[in-house]
């Protein structure tokens, strides 16, 4: 547990990461995932609780004595050093001889495809290149665990997607444990072996990407990870006749004209169109249900819908009972 003043930034969070695993900590900003990372790195010390590294309690060990390295969100490259000096910083501080650390630094720059950039200063690099230098600088120390704090947050979409694939390949090749902090659920789901979903300083659910998406356990996870429709309390009672919270994914929701009858075994709900967004292959409908919640439906653009789609038109949404996931109340 770590408190800042009266705020509990991380509370009763417990997890263990397997050697060689790609582990993601996913959550909105302020959910405690970065604090967790800082506790592992040693920049913050826990008020109570333990951080174990290969079974050894490192809770009060300073960062420079932990075999853990971090890739920072803003890269944190030393502006007054060249790329080479940045990369061989770790070995230099640990007293490795000049020739050996230079050859290792070259090897690392080779690994991140930046050979030939040795003498540049960080100010002369693009965002993606800085990212690679930060990666090489951390990996040269052969850490047991590599911590990545939203490492791709500052990159544009195309570069981000390339780097996602590259990072994942690098992790498989080196077999180093990655602990990856992100607020982008797509990134967490596509890259990681397991994901811990953080909310208000606690882990809501920890599971594989597939399980998080198909079997969310709480309304928060269903909304944040899957972007699913969630019915709780009164809304659930009006729609299904029971107060049990449920989630239904947007692609499982059909859009019907107000008078069309839903097929047998389906739950129907009437409402008013708020907006229809065109996404190319799909369209996303947002409908304000009479039961009091806004539900979304994702439909194939090729599917011909003889349904009025102007805002304010009445429509009927319908979904199969089997497609509903029962949730724990929050």
């Amino acid at each position: 547990m770590r408190t800042f003043g009266t705020v509990r930034a991380v509370d009763r969070v417990s997890f263990s990461v397997e050697p060689g695993e790609f582990f993601a900590m996913l959550g909105p900003s302020g959910s405690g995932k970065t604090t967790c990372l800082r506790l592992i790195a040693g920049f913050d010390l826990p008020d109570s609780g333990q951080v174990l590294l290969e079974g050894r309690d490192v809770s009060t060990v300073p960062p420079y004595e932990r075999n853990v390295n971090t890739v920072f969100q803003d890269y944190a490259l030393f502006p007054h050093m060249t790329v080479l000096e940045n990369v061989d910083y770790g070995p230099r501080m640990r007293g490795m001889s000049g020739a050996e650390r230079t050859s290792r630094a070259h090897e690392m720059l080779e690994l991140v495809k930046l050979a030939g950039f040795e003498q540049r200063k960080p100010g002369q690099l693009s965002g993606g290149q800085k990212q690679r230098v930060a990666l090489a600088r951390a990996l040269i120390n052969q850490p047991k665990v590599l911590l990545l704090d939203e490492p791709l947050g500052a990159l544009d979409l195309k570069l981000r997607e390339e780097m996602q694939i590259e990072l994942r390949n690098l992790q498989r090749r080196l077999g180093i444990t990655f602990v990856y902090v992100t607020h982008d659920q797509g990134e967490a789901l596509s890259m990681s072996d397991r994901v811990a979903v953080f909310n208000q300083g606690r882990i809501e659910q920890m599971a594989t990407a597939r399980e998080l998406y198909t079997r969310p356990r709480t309304p928060f996870v269903a909304r944040f990870v899957g972007g699913a429709n969630v019915g709780e309390g009164d809304v659930a009672e009006r729609l299904c006749g029971a107060r049990q919270a449920f989630a239904v994914r947007t692609e499982n929701v059909q859009v019907l004209a107000p008078n069309d009858a839903a097929a047998a075994g389906m739950i129907a709900a009437d409402g008013e169109v708020l907006d229809v967004q065109y996404h190319g292959a799909t369209s996303r409908w947002q409908v304000k249900l009479d039961a009091g919640e806004i539900f979304s439906a994702t439909r194939n653009a090729s599917e011909v819908l003889r349904v009025p789609d102007a805002p304010g038109e009445r429509v009927r949404l319908a979904w199969a009972r089997e497609s509903m996931v029962t949730l724990e109340a929050q």
């Binding site: 790195a41 920049f43 390295n69 910083y89 770790g90 501080m93 120390n141």
Partner: peptide, 8 residues
């Protein structure tokens, strides 16, 4: 922090 993280 990065410097400490890298072992300095």
């Amino acid at each position: 922090q990065a410097s400490a993280d890298l072992g300095a």
